[in-house]
Amino acid sequence: MPTLRATFRLLALALLLVALAPLDTLWRLARRPSPWPQRFLRAAARLLGARLRIIGTPRRHDVVILANHLSWLDILLLGGACGASFVSREDIGRTPLVGWMARRNHTIFIARGDRMGVEAQIAAIRAALGPHPVAIFPEGTTGSGDPLLPFKPALLAALDPPPPGLVVQAVRIDYGDATRELAWVDAEPGLSHARRVLGRRGSFTATLEFDAPFAPAGGRKAIAAEARRRIEAMAQPPKV
């Protein structure tokens, strides 16, 4: 059954892409901002069983989103919720179809480990800021979320100094009781994780909690520390 369920979902995703790609192309030919990548991501998340719950108010422009990272599902959920583009590994851009879809969503590709190219990467991120949210997963990899992994602040140099009017919004991603099944941890091969998520039975609640935006100040390390503090605080049970 998991294999059959995964096959059905892949076919449904393919049909969704075939239906929306021409509409996206028409919007771009008309030189209009295309809503279709966001709509595709939102519909794809639902096809995979996610029932989105949003807490707080997502900022729609002039914002860098810093979020914890549980799974590749995070991209579908965040992109579908607020139209965010993402900072991703360079090899993703070379992956057939996935790379094409990522470019349609204004993904910024960086080469991990390329210390000589850091300045160019920072410039690319800085150039993308403004029209739509830019999301960064500062943990640099996926995990269970408990505890948060250390935040890597290197890419946040794009906010030092911050462009005028730009803010940072910390976001906590939570899959509730389904986290253990959906989180990508322990160096699990990507194909194995994808099969497991695609073949999972039933739906789950995916919560995106958007904290109040804050002005980036004090340099990249201070920005990373403040975002991490806010995400940790959102994970705490409310005080009675």
Rank of each mutant, 00 (worst) to 15 (best):
A128F: 10
M116C: 01
R89I: 13
V134K: 02
A123Q: 12
D174S: 06
P150S: 03
R103A: 15
A154D: 07
L73I: 12
V87P: 12
L149N: 00
V134L: 13
H61K: 04
A102K: 04
G93K: 03
N68R: 03
R172P: 05
L156R: 07
L156T: 06
W72C: 05
R112H: 10
A128S: 11
R59E: 07
E139P: 14
V98F: 09
I108W: 00
I92E: 04
L97A: 08
V63K: 02
L73E: 01
L159W: 09
I136S: 10
R103F: 08
P131W: 02
I65Y: 15
I173S: 00
P163S: 08
V98N: 07
T95R: 04
V168Y: 05
Q169I: 04
V64Y: 03
M116T: 10
L148M: 03
W72F: 09
P162H: 03
Q169P: 05
G113Y: 14
L66F: 11
A124R: 11
P163M: 14
P164K: 11
G79I: 07
P163E: 02
V167F: 11
W72Y: 10
H106R: 12
A102M: 15
T95C: 03
P96K: 00
L155W: 05
H132T: 13
V167N: 04
L156W: 08
A170W: 07
L97V: 13
A81F: 15
E119Q: 04
A120W: 07
D114P: 13
T57R: 12
I173E: 00
G145Q: 04
L78I: 15
R112G: 12
Q169W: 13
P150T: 05
G145K: 10
L78G: 08
G79T: 06
T57M: 06
R115M: 06
L155P: 10
D146N: 10
